[in-house]
Write a protein that binds this DNA or RNA. Sequence first.
DNA 1: ATCCACATTGGCAGCGCTGCCAATTCGATG
DNA 2: CATCGAATTGGCAGCGCTGCCAATGTGGAT
Lengths: 348, 348
Amino acid sequence: MDEGRNEVFADDEDGLREGVARRPITLADVAREARVGESTVSRVLRSHGSFSEKTRARVEAAVTRLGYVPNRIAGTLASTGSRLIGIVIPSLTNIVFPDLLRGATAALDQEGFQSVIAVTDYDQDREEAVVGSLLSWRPAGLIVTGLEHNPGTRRRLLASGVRVAELLDTDGPGLDIVVGYSNRAAGEASARHLAGRGYRRIGYIGHDLSKDKRAAKRYAGFREALGQAGLALAGEERVATPSSVESGRHGLASLLARVPDLDAAYFSNDDMALGGYFHCLAGGLAVPDRLALFGYNGLDVGRLMPQPLATIRTPRVEAGATAARLLCAGGPATVVDLGFELIEGATA
Amino acid sequence: MDEGRNEVFADDEDGLREGVARRPITLADVAREARVGESTVSRVLRSHGSFSEKTRARVEAAVTRLGYVPNRIAGTLASTGSRLIGIVIPSLTNIVFPDLLRGATAALDQEGFQSVIAVTDYDQDREEAVVGSLLSWRPAGLIVTGLEHNPGTRRRLLASGVRVAELLDTDGPGLDIVVGYSNRAAGEASARHLAGRGYRRIGYIGHDLSKDKRAAKRYAGFREALGQAGLALAGEERVATPSSVESGRHGLASLLARVPDLDAAYFSNDDMALGGYFHCLAGGLAVPDRLALFGYNGLDVGRLMPQPLATIRTPRVEAGATAARLLCAGGPATVVDLGFELIEGATA
DNA sequence: ATCCACATTGGCAGCGCTGCCAATTCGATG
DNA sequence: CATCGAATTGGCAGCGCTGCCAATGTGGAT
């Protein structure tokens, strides 16, 4: 099948045999075809600088005739900045990060930027490696997740001189642009809500907090606010697996086995909480009378459960979009707190 | 805060005033620092060609001392191929495509490739535009979703001479590499399963099939196999919104309002089916006795419902990984059918 | 007719790296 | 100690484009 493949090539001027030595079409070919200078073609294609209407038409016709595709690699090298933005996320398993990507790519697309993505699996050493790798593409900016990075990553980011946006967390100092909300405050709000509703035997079901720093901040905020309400965690379960519906379901099951008289469960996110809800449904535990459930993220699925999930809605798509726009705009370093919204739901 | 930013620069040789005119560090700086030629540095950094151990150490020391980050833009322009793979997906809302991305980025990462992504929103004209945009980065390969593309997209893909992998569908002719499974056969298998279980009043709840060609193929296969079993759809509901838990829940509700005696519902995917399940739970409809549910995709969440969802598990992550590996390997055009697996579950 | 300001255009030197090729060095051998 | 092939190294011409600058054209005012 390889001979079925096909390239648009220019005839080679050094042309040996017809149809043999050929090469990809370049801007110079277009210039020749349109009978104008190379810089004129460049100006027309980028709508930059001045040129007559007649020239534009000639160039565009030549481009179409030859099927020319500009080479942005060359363009980037020749000019100062690239139109690439690197995006570093910890995971693609949790819908939260695709949401962030969605916001970012939509905004970048509008500005004519392309996104290069890299996944760290919540590993700071991998983060350092992928940041290095992304920087070698000389991106116009970098979007990373969270404020915690190892020293190597920080050094590389600062040394690169590239604009950086840190997303989904405002609890701590940022390097440049920060767009997010306070995870700590979200944890506190959740605890106050549960305490305010009269729950007293509250448990926590979470995943590995040593890697997911934002979940750890919510947990810390949650505990602190519980304390301020005169309460303490009645029990907690940390699953070793990544957060998921499955780990939420199993996590709640084993926590209840150890601490049967729990009256509320706070999950590290909605996926976990959904798993907990399924456990309750399967085991005939009345929600919220026997056990209240509280999640985090405000996923659509929570809204559509027979009893809408009590949770906190986070502006993930907006954060991605805002960060992308700020990076493109090139303003000063800032912190944008987008806040979050507590959704009362019916499970707590 | 802009003055807080920091770049690693070399002293400018044309140096006017100390600390003023500076420029980013290049390979030439490293060569000078290590007292070797530029090509030697290049060879060491790429572990390509031969050089002595002593030289390697000198170069690496110089790299560290200067904090040099190679410029892949320049490297790509100078060499033949880039280490970029473009990935075109229709959506980031449905977890299916992040799954695909996950498989692809993991495999690409291993091979030292970077992914550039673009989202089409299921719009063929946008697909054409983003393909053009991705091609301008001269990627080593392109991963696109599905086999259906408008003529402009096909022309661009073929003309570019870039390797292309089309994913998640094998029902039709491909351009180059095809990795997926038969959506049509998946629809047929679902219908045969439901018919075999004795369901007779089967309804369909789906989203916009004019844009989602793969869902349309499943639908067609489903109807055909129903016909072969002597059955016909007892009713169907097409929601205008994208597939989601919400549209599944509402879609089932309105279908049941019109066709109350349905005994089974086939959904265009698991998200929709989960919504349908929530509708049944909320309305007290016994599953599967009063109404059976069948989904598509085999998401984790379906496995963890109180009654595991009957569905078809599709190898999305594997498809992404396989396509990535084939693109990097550079073999001949092929079709890889990864198949799918029917999960009986407990809802049908 | 002359001159000037401004719009339009082309030429060409890089951007930072790689690939080719020639030069040099190193060892081992006779 | 001379000789030769292999290992190691450096020089430099591009890769395709953009940015700068000079050259040319244009129209109106003088």
